[in-house]
């Protein structure tokens, strides 16, 4: 009896492995293998025309944070790298916050329409996706450049005499990022708001909660899963973004995505590029862990 059962469970587990093997294969080829390559590269030295030489070195990792003095090999904190890292972090954080500030009311607005109108609004939210990202970014350029529509309009109406420099600033990058990633915030927040039981809002109102308190005590806490999902969906691509800083930051305000690209392109320093991208990954993971932990504990300590 026992042996029969053992055989059966063995064959059952074999079937299980067989069934999930395509998925496992995709994960290995698509995620684990490339990651291993990157990790390996980050511990090698750069080849003369790109690629890597197979000699072990921690130099790439050291240079993520430090500059090595050309003459006496002393290490000093790298101002450029830190600035790029910090700028990337701050810009993507600002983008996430702005997306939330704009996206939450929008999602709430859509979630409180009648079901037929909701679908129309949701469709409108996705309209920007129908156009290529480059074209949309060029359109923003045209809006905010010195001879662009906004500046022209402001000068014509006499609000300002000199054009405001908006293009090629951190503001421009942030604007572009918010524009691009806003739908990724709206959709998950909408999904969590749409599921909310209207009678909970009535119950809160019945129990002396003013509209603002209904928002603070009921709507926002219950939408938290959507807010967390939306923030992650915005923050991760924003911190590694590539196109927007080039077109709207004008190459002067690099973000880490551009810096990594540079190492694999003109810089011909694949190990350093690998180390940078792994560092970016680590930052994102730490940020996420802190964020989700904090979000969770906040929910429990209510009232």
């Amino acid at each position: 009896m026992a042996s029969l059962e053992a055989v059966r469970s063995k064959s059952a587990s074999r079937t299980r492995w067989l069934l999930i093997s395509p998925a496992v294969l995709v994960v290995i080829i698509g995620a684990i293998a490339p990651l291993l390559v990157i990790v390996t590269y980050s511990f090698l030295t750069p080849g003369p025309t790109g690629g890597v030489n197979y000699t072990l070195s921690f130099d790439a990792w050291t240079r993520v944070l430090f500059d090595r003095d050309v003459f006496d090999d002393t290490l000093t904190l790298s101002g450029t790298n830190l600035e790029i890292l910090l700028r990337s972090l701050l810009l993507s954080l600002a983008t996430t916050v702005l997306c939330l500030l704009v996206g939450f009311p929008t999602a709430y607005f859509i979630a409180t329409r009648n079901p037929l109108n909701r679908e129309v609004w949701l469709l409108l939210v996705t309209v920007p996706f129908w156009t290529n990202l480059l074209i949309r970014t060029f359109a923003i350029q045209d809006l905010i450049r010195n001879e662009g529509i906004i500046n022209t309009l402001l000068i014509k109406t006499g609000f300002i005499s000199e054009p405001i420099q908006m293009l090629f600033t951190n503001f421009a990058i942030c604007l572009g990022l918010v524009y691009v990633y806003l739908p990724l915030m709206i959709l998950p927040v909408y999904a969590s708001l749409e599921r909310q039981d209207r009678s909970l809002l009535e119950a809160a109102s019945d129990l002396y909660a003013r509209p603002f308190n209904v928002l603070r005590e009921i709507i926002v806490p219950l939408a938290k899963p959507g807010i967390i999902a939306g923030s992650i969906l915005v923050f991760i691509p924003a911190i590694g973004t590539y196109v927007t800083p080039i077109l709207l930051g004008g190459g002067r305000n690099l973000m880490i995505g551009n810096y990594i690209e540079f190492q694999f392109g003109q810089g011909r320093d694949w190990p350093f590029g690998s180390a940078l991208s792994l560092a970016l990954m680590a930052i994102v993971m730490v940020a996420l862990l802190v964020y989700i932990r904090h979000g969770d504990s906040h929910g429990h300590e209510h009232g």
């Binding site: 009678s199 109102s205 806490p221 929910g299």
Partner: peptide, 20 residues
Amino acid sequence: PPFQRPINTVFQNYALFPHM
């Protein structure tokens, strides 16, 4: 408005706050 009435309600589906 309801939040200014000294009247409270037991709702049909109870409407208890799930996060509390």
